[in-house]
Computed example of a mutant assay.
Amino acid sequence: MQLDTIDLNILTLLQQNGRISNQDLAEQVFLSPSSCLRRVRILEEAGIISRYSAVLSPEKLGLELDVFVQVTMRRDVESWHENFMQVLQDYPEVVGSYIITGDANYLLRVKARNLKHYSAFVLEKLYKIPGVQDIRSNIVLQAIKETYELPRELLRDG
Rank of each mutant, 00 (worst) to 15 (best):
Q15M: 14
Y118F: 15
L11N: 03
R39M: 06
S34A: 13
E124W: 00
V87K: 08
Y106S: 11
Y127D: 14
P130F: 10
V95H: 07
K116C: 00
M73E: 01
L154G: 05
I99K: 11
E78A: 07
D24V: 05
Q89N: 09
G47P: 08
L63I: 05
S53N: 09
G158T: 02
K125A: 07
V94Q: 08
A120E: 06
Q23P: 00
N105W: 01
E124I: 07
A120L: 08
Q16C: 02
E146R: 13
G131D: 02
Y148L: 15
V110P: 01
Y148W: 13
S32W: 11
K125P: 04
Y91A: 14
G131W: 01
A54D: 07
L126T: 03
T5S: 13
R41G: 02
V87E: 11
I135E: 09
R136K: 11
V95T: 13
L88R: 03
G96E: 15
F121C: 09
S32M: 14
K125G: 05
Q15E: 14
P33M: 10
E59L: 07
M73C: 03
K125L: 06
L31Q: 08
A104N: 04
S137L: 08
I100D: 07
A54G: 05
K60S: 14
D157Q: 06
V122S: 03
L65G: 01
I135P: 04
R39P: 00
P33W: 02
M85H: 04
I42G: 01
A46Q: 13
R19F: 07
H117Q: 06
L31D: 06
A112C: 10
L11Q: 07
S119P: 02
G102A: 04
L154Y: 12
M1E: 09
K125Q: 12
E64K: 15
E153Q: 09
I100S: 10
P130Q: 10
Q86D: 15
Y98C: 06
S119V: 05
V95M: 07
D66G: 02
D4T: 06
G158H: 12
I139Y: 11
R19Q: 08
